[in-house]
């Protein structure tokens, strides 16, 4: 069996532990960011003015200009770390798919979900960030215009569930991998993760709908 293990090949194994901790931390960092991001974007539900105010706050403090790229770096960093675990060869993908299919095992499938969503996020997230960050400042009107254009609606309709699934599964995984829950807590964590994912998708959808009804000329 040939295996594609690492794009960081040749490193001393001493780093493996650090990398694993970093992967967890970068994941948490990104989750925190996504929640912050959610607050920004979903604030439009309370009215475009609220969103504008928050966006303005970020820009006037320079956080958008500096933070944006930093997030992008974190995003890449997380990708690089996680990529150590992803099968990039067709062979590997076939194995993991047929394995998950044979086993009919939920947590194994969830990993497949995480890996697939990750690839989609990587591409779409990058595009999205590029588009938004090269077109500062962020205003509700601009966002609404983009979304009402149609293309971006479809774009977000795909990206949104991917992100939320990835976040949900990621949270669950951190919980079980680092022992925040024990065997008997697993089922509960699963439920929590599913509910969370659902709630966030709903908020996201509501936000998208809200954007449709914003008068872009205002």
């Amino acid at each position: 069996m040939t295996v594609e293990t690492s794009i960081l090949a040749g490193r001393p194994s001493k780093w493996d532990g650090i990398l694993d901790v970093c992967q967890m931390l970068s994941g948490i960092g990104l989750i925190l960011f996504m929640w912050a991001h959610m607050i920004l974007v979903a604030s439009v539900l309370f009215g475009p003015g609220v969103m504008n105010a928050i966006a303005e706050f970020f820009e006037s403090t320079g956080m958008a200009q500096v933070g944006g790229p930093l997030i992008f770096l974190l995003f890449l960093f997380h990708f690089l770390l996680a990529a150590r675990k992803l099968p990039f060869r067709f062979e590997g993908m076939k194995i993991i798919f047929s394995h998950a299919k044979m086993m009919r095992h939920r947590d194994t499938w969830l990993w497949v979900v995480q890996a697939v969503s990750a690839m989609i996020i990587l591409i779409m997230g990058s595009i999205h960030m590029w588009v938004v960050l090269t077109d500062l400042p962020i205003t509700a009107a601009k966002s609404a215009a983009r979304i009402q254009g149609g293309f971006w609606t479809g774009f977000y309709l795909l990206l949104l569930p991917m992100v939320e699934l990835h976040v949900g599964v990621g949270l669950y995984r951190i919980g079980v991998k680092w022992g925040l829950v024990k065997t008997d807590g697993r089922a509960g964590l699963h439920r929590g993760e599913r509910i969370l994912t659902l709630i966030f998708i709903c908020i996201g959808l509501a936000t998208l709908i809200r954007f449709w009804f914003i008068n872009t000329l205002a």
């Binding site: 293990t5 690492s6 194994s13 001493k14 493996d16 532990g17 990398l19 694993d20 150590r84 675990k85 086993m103 095992h105 947590d107 194994t108 990993w111 995984r173 079980v176 991998k177 065997t183 697993r186």
Partner: peptide, 16 residues
């Protein structure tokens, strides 16, 4: 303490 060992585990939990 390496990717052949504990850090290779992705928490798939099929083992358990």
């Amino acid at each position: 303490g390496n990717d052949e060992g504990i850090f290779g585990c992705m928490g798939l939990l099929a083992c358990e």
